[in-house]
């Protein structure tokens, strides 16, 4: 199992669909993808985690890094996740307070602060 990444544009948002395992080995790929999007001017990101089987602190670090980057451009980074075992990691690290977490891509795309 590796990491899969695909991006699409919905209105002014860029949806990054992530699948597989985000860990110390694969997280750099996700980091590169997020950095590339921000460098290309996509500042409103929705990261769809529904296809993620595993997430560790390295992956959390990459998401926090992505959030820092989009915020530097007054952008946003929203997550889509319904999986309890993934949500639990956000809860125990207190990151549910940092990331807006949505139940569907549609909801995340429509959301404004």
């Amino acid at each position: 199992m590796d990491l899969s990444l695909s991006t699409r544009t919905v209105g002014d948002r860029t949806v990054v669909e992530v699948g597989g395992e985000i860990d110390v080995y694969t997280a750099p790929k996700l980091r590169e993808q997020l950095v590339e999007l921000v460098n290309d001017g996509s500042f409103h990101l929705v990261v769809d985690m529904e296809g993620v089987d595993f997430l560790d602190s390295t992956g959390l670090g990459v998401l926090v890094g992505g959030l820092k980057r989009v915020r530097a451009h007054e952008g946003s980074l929203r997550l889509v996740c319904n999986q309890e075992r993934i949500l639990k990691i956000f809860r125990i690290t207190g990151l549910t307070k940092v990331f807006p977490i949505h139940t569907s891509v549609e909801e995340a795309v429509a959301a404004t602060d």
């Binding site: 560790d56 602190s57 390295t58 959390l60 670090g61 990691i89 125990i92 690290t93």
Partner: peptide
């Protein structure tokens, strides 16, 4: 140090 702490935070939370 930050990454190290995050890993330990996850372990102690779990």
């Amino acid at each position: 140090a930050e990454e190290d702490e995050m890993g330990l935070a996850v372990i102690s939370g779990l």
